[in-house]
Amino acid sequence: MGHLKSMPLPTFRIDRALHVLECSDSAVRRFGNQWHLASIVDEGSQRKLMKLQEQSTTVEMALLTVGLKPEAFSVSIQWETDEAYVQCVELDRKLARLEQMVRQQQQRLAEADFQLMEKKEEAEAVLVKMKERSAPLIALSNSTALIPMFGDLDSALMEHTKDALSHGFYERDFEQLYIDFTAVDTITMSGIEQFNQLVDILLLLDASIRIVGVKPTHAPFLKNHRHSGLIYASSIQIKSESLS
C-alpha cells in the first residue's frame, strides 16, 4: 500500500464500518487527520454516505475541509470484499465561474431590457403630454374661442384632446369657434374621422365652427371627408363688441 500515501488526489482506504485504515498525505492536507469517514461528510450528504457504504459508485458530496469549510467533491469508491478505496475530486470551480459570468451577462441584458421598457413608458407619457398640448382651447373673447392645431392631425392627437376640447367649449359657454390648421402637418384618415366626431359634438353644443389656415396639402383630405356643418374661412374675425 506504499503508493497510497503519495496519491495526488485525497485517497482513503476504509473498512465496512467506514473507519479510515490509511490515507494519503493529500487527504490529510485537505481534511486533517481523520479516523472515520463520516466525520468529514456534511450533514446534507450523510444519506449519500450510506449509498457509498453499500456499493462501488461515484457520488457528489459536500465534504468538510480543514477549518470546517464544506466544499463539493465527486467521491468515488471501489469495494474489494471488506475494504474499499475512496478518492475525492474537487468539483471544478471553473464551471462555477463560467456560470457566474453567464448569469451576470444575463442580468445585465435583463436590466438593459427593463431600462428600455421604462424609457419607452416615459417616452409614451411625454408623447401623450405633447399631444394634449397640441390642440389647446384659447379664448379670443367671451363668446369666441380658437383651437390652433399643431403637428399631425392623427388619431393620437384627437384621442388625447377630443374630450377636453368639447368639455372646455361647453363649460365656458362659447358660441363661435375657429379651428386653425396653419400648423397642421399631415392629416390621417383616422385622424380626420375622429376630428369629424369632435365637430359633431360641438355642433350639438350649438357651436358655429370655422376652419382657417387650410393648406393645399390638407385640401384633398378635407374635401373627401368634408363635414357639412363646417365653414371654411380665410381669416379670423372677432365681433368687436364681444371683445373681452
Partner: peptide, 25 residues
C-alpha cells in the same frame, strides 16, 4: 433532489441562475 443523488451540483447551478433571472423579470 441533490441529497438523494438525483441531480448534480451543475444542475443546481443552472437552476439557481435560471431562478435568479426569473425573479428579476
Amino acid at each position: 433532489l441533490w441529497e438523494q443523488d438525483h441531480i448534480s451540483v451543475a444542475d443546481e447551478h443552472l437552476a439557481t441562475a435560471t431562478c435568479d433571472f426569473m425573479i428579476s423579470r
